[in-house]
Design a protein around this nucleic acid. Structure first.
Lengths: 307, 307
DNA sequence: ATGTGCTATGCGTGAACGTCATGGACTTCC
DNA sequence: GGAAGTCCATGACGTTCACGCATAGCACAT
């Protein structure tokens, strides 16, 4: 069996798995069953004569041979899509930039950058997508994103150890804050002391996150009491406003917090920095994408100044 | 039906038809039946929602929509091939240049250029192919050749009217000659008068070529007597040496004509010029291909000087 | 008229690709 | 320790699709 005999379907399936990280998720995205995905992957691996995905308990990771195929597969699939667009008479997607960002970037940074772009480059079309950092990184590597805005906690390791390494540029860096009900005594000051965070009830991001519960101030010497869990920032903020508990938030959220919520820095503990990065593949960036990257940088700077 | 649902097979078949010029020839090249080719083309046209090939009595011509698809298809198929090579551990085909030339170029110009290249750029690999001008042009457009050496007779129209137009550079230009048996009285002089060509027996290229029998001096005012037909130059020259007749040859052949044959210019009639061109697509040429092109130019110059 | 190039199409067969259902390996929670 | 959850793999099955064969249609040549 020769790799030249692969089907476009198997390339598409492979890209989806590379992007989603698991067969099951890829199947859901494609409207297939997991079984079909498994077979397609088996088929493309047979054609390639090598293992393209390393099966792990938590999903699949692209191998070295897989990277070779992924690289080619994306340009092949993009080319097919471009042909499809050209044939239907649509103009080429030259001015469309695909950006992914982690959830909170969509609240402040994204809208600012897009507003600025709409004035400065009205011809540009930007398509955005919200996802977690691992998903964004996979999407970048799978070629379905041009740019990704990632959040990193200390230690600021690169988001993956794959090669080639992603190109990372820091957009902004700021301390983690806590969101406090305006009615709470803590809200009287302009900052919160870490000691005052003991014994409080917390609103966590998920019921059971692996390392360091998201939403709870890290490094507390007690087992925190999780009163609520919510993934959505709007929900979390309104839970705080309702006095249901505290939660950690990035400082940028101060500008968009609803009434009844104060966002305050924390003093006393080790500095809890969060770094926001713009990531891309180490390939030459299309002109349009470079403009969007620049707009994101400007928006980050403006936000820094405003705070 | 969406163009994204095309199969790689149909792309390959389409490329083959574009290159061969007929369904039947493409089928032969691919090891398919003509029936299969017809169906694959129907399938890809259904997917594209447009006619990609214009059916004519003498075969098929690529339409405007077809050019769009052909363009994309070649890069897609090349990409797949590249992936296949990478997977089998072979080095990328970065240094391989595919050159096509019309038959006579393989006798003098090609060998000279290749010998020079072997000394100057030993790392380069050149793959060559011999074919007629129309086939070469189609192969260029289908992306299966990087360079093509074409022969043009007056009036020197571009070899096809497709767009984008091919980039043409003249390698050399010289007069048509006649090959005369050394024993023939005509061979005594250093040239032949056109009047002396009347009543001679000729060795033609093919039994019945459409316009202007190849091998017979053009513009004679009588119906020429075709004594033999031969496509192969070596055969033709030896038929001449055996005194079986005359035939027209490009002047370059003088340097490689066997004993018993003299190659002489013709005086008296209108000048019969033949132009040798180097053709390529109007796309940026890979580094390696540019070197081969340069070598061909040098070889053409050297040949000019030598004569 | 007959022959020779083209391409299109009806028909039958076999392979390929989906779904469904099941199973094995492993982790997490109670 | 057992149950329930996460992965992925695989046997059974139906349907679709792409091939070859044979034949038809068409335009042009001799």
């Amino acid at each position: 069996m020769d790799f030249r005999d692969v089907s476009l379907t198997s390339l598409r399936v492979f890209r989806a798995v590379a992007e989603q990280g698991t067969f099951t998720a890829a199947a859901a995205e494609l409207g297939y069953t997991q079984s079909a995905v498994s077979r397609q992957i088996a088929s493309i691996e047979r054609a390639a004569g090598a293992e393209l995905l390393e099966r792990r308990r938590d999903g699949a990771r692209v191998t070295t041979a897989g990277r070779i195929v992924l690289q080619r597969a994306t340009t092949v699939l993009d080319e097919i899509d471009a042909a499809a667009r050209e044939l239907t008479g649509l103009p080429a997607r030259a001015g469309t930039v695909r950006v992914g960002w982690f959830p909170i970037a969509g609240a402040v940074l994204g809208p600012r950058a897009l507003t600025a772009l709409r004035r400065s480059d009205p011809a540009l079309t930007v398509v955005t997508r919200e996802a977690g950092t691992p998903a964004l990184v996979r999407a970048l590597r799978a070629g379905s994103l041009d740019l990704a805005v990632l959040a990193l906690a200390p230690p600021f390791r690169p988001p993956d150890a794959e090669s080639p390494a992603l190109v990372l540029r820091t957009l902004t860096e700021r301390s983690l804050c806590v969101a406090v009900p305006a009615a709470d005594p803590l809200a009287r000051g302009s900052f919160v002391d870490v000691a005052d965070l003991r014994g409080r009830r917390w609103i966590a991001g998920s019921a059971t996150a692996g390392d360091g519960l998201m939403g709870v101030w890290p490094g507390l010497d007690e087992k925190p009491e999780i009163a609520h869990t919510a993934r959505d920032w709007l929900s979390k903020l309104h839970l705080v406003a309702a006095g249901c508990g505290l939660t950690t938030v990035p400082a940028v959220l101060a500008t968009v917090a609803p009434a009844g919520v104060r966002v305050l820095p924390v003093r006393g503990g080790p500095r809890e920095q969060r770094r926001v990065l713009l990531a891309r593949l180490p390939q030459p960036l299309p002109e349009a994408a470079a403009r969007v990257a620049a707009a994101l940088h400007r928006a980050a700077l403006d936000t820094d100044v405003a705070l």
